[in-house]
Design a protein around this nucleic acid. Sequence first.
DNA 1: TAGGCGATGGTCT
DNA 2: GACCATCGCCTAC
Length: 184
Amino acid sequence: MNLVDFLDRDAAVVAPDLLGTKLLVAGVGGLIVETEAYHPDDPASHSFNGPTPRNLVMFGPAGFVYVYRSYGIHWCVNFVCEKEGSASAVLIRALQPTHGISAMRRRRGLHDERALCSGPGKLCEALGITIKQSELALDVSPYALHARTEQSEIVTGVRIGITKAVDFPWRYGLKGSRFVSKRF
DNA sequence: TAGGCGATGGTCT
DNA sequence: GACCATCGCCTAC
């Protein structure tokens, strides 16, 4: 697929469309089972208050990766979407591990496969994503994103862990997946 | 299974 | 100096 065309759309369209695609970082990763959309005019979005050194990549073209530190401890990874008007992105919240599971277990210090990537901070640790992997293109090594092979049923819900615009249903998950961070 | 809470540091005001 | 797009451990049931 053409990655830039795929991502250069409304975040609320891209987010559910990403479910079932395969994200790999240096060969380690799995199927995306949970995402959240963040809109340009969304008070909960990092881009809402305009560009800063941290979020600048969100104001660039679609197809790039935005990594930030959350709660001073964790890393979270976003895909930059269309920039029409301002900036938008999709937060990747959970993966179903398929590739490099032994490497993920080593990084996470965990055996339970379900807990390896069931949250934005967890999947970054499992895939080895830090600020060093921010502002890189998604279609260039070490990143790779592969189109899904079959259409999947999608469930929606309210976003998690935010304090603003809490009632927009911009959280998307693969129906019935055991690998999401919280049940819908 | 569900809810409370401490750890911890970059970013912005 | 305050704010957090979290996690994991601990309780209570």
